[in-house]
Design a protein around this nucleic acid. Structure first.
Length: 437
DNA sequence: TCTGGGGTCCTACATCGT
DNA sequence: TCTGACGATGTAGGACCC
């Protein structure tokens, strides 16, 4: 190998403005200690959905609780028996248990006492019920979770403005230029943020601070729940390389299985492989990416603003439906999905020009079809019409488990309207694949 | 055994215009 | 008129993430 591991790591982590001459110089210059380092934090709320429920039902603290399934709110169900009592005074034995759960669905989150039994996110409810039959099961309250999500992100932005939203319970934060962001490698600022979030929401989170997003993401897992992990560039090999390949954000079950089959179990073993070998086995893009990731290299910036690419609605039926025998039911669901997507677009101020459908057959195979039209729309009837044309292009001789509608190629409604006002034109007709020609 | 919903990004391939 | 290269665009599917 031409360069030492230390050379690779040190050269990668210096900020462009601070490291023009790279590793050789930074290794010699004694003021390296005063140099401002790139410090990126990854913050992850602990068992977020479950923790939000425990704010409402504090009597369930310390008990195994999972969130998932069920469309009816539990407080409605138990109100039938405990009509006049405040929610916090309803005894734990009144809550539904996993072993009594009937229906489809997966676990969204599990509290730490529930995780002891081996249940966790994305696990089927039936399997979870076998592992932890006496765990309490609650449905997710998305409205409340969204409210708390906005609250904790507001706390962070007040302290450190460069925040990248990574979903409902996660963010990246650029500590580099935040006052105090360099102190103790970021630990001081991380503690401040944890304290602020707890005061605002009564919820805990875990934070990893590292030279880049890739390592910060891993670091936030090191010390869960309610932990802080600080990783410096010189720690990377010792902390990353013994870990399983799956710990790299971006290596999922497929890539993991492939690596295992090739005899690679840990991140260090990926790092030891030649790039050419990785490219040969995983393709050019993934091979190079995997090599960089294993060496802890990642120069992606913290992105504070982004536009959505698509919006969709999908639903899994209570029972598998047949396109012909359940035509009326499917038609009603289909229309409703189109209306929901249109509502979402209008509420958020977007229009789109690629309309598509997704369906999942009873054997879990997925089929998608798209159609791009000549203009932007957020009209539910038009979405329904184009989606209907897409639906005619998929085989419908097998039972369906799921149906979805998607609108892509989005643009802001106001921008499209402004362009249309500046250059009015007649919308071109939309070809109908099945009724014409 | 059972596997939700809402996304993003990547790849492969077909088609079309130059 | 035919052919090939090439880029842009659309489509379908897959992997992955929260």
């Amino acid at each position: 190998m031409a360069a030492s591991p230390v050379f690779h790591l040190v050269s990668w982590f210096r900020l462009p403005g601070h490291c023009a001459a790279g590793a050789a110089r930074s290794a010699k210059i004694p003021d390296a200690v005063t140099e401002k380092l790139r410090r990126i934090a990854h913050l992850d709320m602990d068992a977020f959905f479950a923790s939000v429920e425990l704010l409402r039902y504090p009597q369930l603290r310390g008990l195994p609780v999972v969130i998932g399934g069920g469309r009816r709110r539990v407080d409605e169900i138990i109100r039938e028996r405990y009509a006049e009592r405040p929610l916090s005074e309803i005894p734990p034995e009144a809550f539904p248990l996993l072993k009594d759960y009937v229906g489809r669905g997966v676990i969204t989150t599990a509290t730490y006492p529930a995780r002891v039994f081996g249940v966790g996110s994305a696990m089927g409810m039936m399997k979870a019920a076998k592992l932890a039959p006496d765990a309490i099961v609650l449905p997710a309250d998305f409205d409340e979770v969204r409210r708390v999500s906005r609250a904790f992100k507001a706390v962070i932005r007040d302290i450190a403005p460069l925040v990248e939203d990574r979903g409902i319970d996660e963010v990246y934060i650029d500590f580099t230029d935040v006052p105090g962001g360099q102190r103790e490698g970021g630990r001081v600022l991380a503690r401040l943020i944890q304290k602020g979030i707890f005061e605002a929401t009564r919820l805990t989170c875990s934070i990893g601070v590292a030279p880049n997003k890739l390592i910060a993401k891993m670091a936030s897992e090191f010390n869960k729940p309610n932990g802080i992990s600080i990783v410096f560039e010189e720690d990377v090999q010792a902390k990353m390389w013994p870990l399983a390949v799956r710990k790299i954000n971006g290596i999922g079950p497929k890539a993991e299985a492939r690596l295992h089959k090739l005899g690679v179990q840990t991140i260090g073993e990926i790092a030891a492989k030649d790039v050419a070998w990785l490219v040969e086995n995983f393709g050019r893009s993934t091979g190079h990416w995997m090599h960089h990731a294993a060496w802890g290299r990642d120069d992606r910036p913290v992105v504070t603003e982004s536009e959505p690419v698509s919006m969709s609605r999908e639903t899994t039926f209570d029972r598998d439906l047949h396109a012909v025998r359940d035509r009326a039911e499917l038609g009603a669901i289909f229309t409703q999905l189109c209306e929901h997507v249109a509502e979402d677009l209008r509420r958020k101020g977007y229009v789109g020009k690629t309309i598509g459908i997704k369906l999942r057959y009873d054997d879990f195979r997925i089929a998608t079809r798209d159609q791009t039209i000549g203009h932007f729309t957020d009209d539910p009837r038009e979405i329904r019409r184009i989606a209907g044309q897409c639906l005619k292009r998929v085989p419908l001789d097998q039972r369906l488990r799921l149906l979805g509608v998607r609108v892509g190629k989005l643009a802001r409604t106001e921008e499209v309207a402004a362009i249309a006002a500046a250059a009015p034109c007649v919308a071109e007709p939309i070809p109908d694949l099945f009724t014409q020609g």
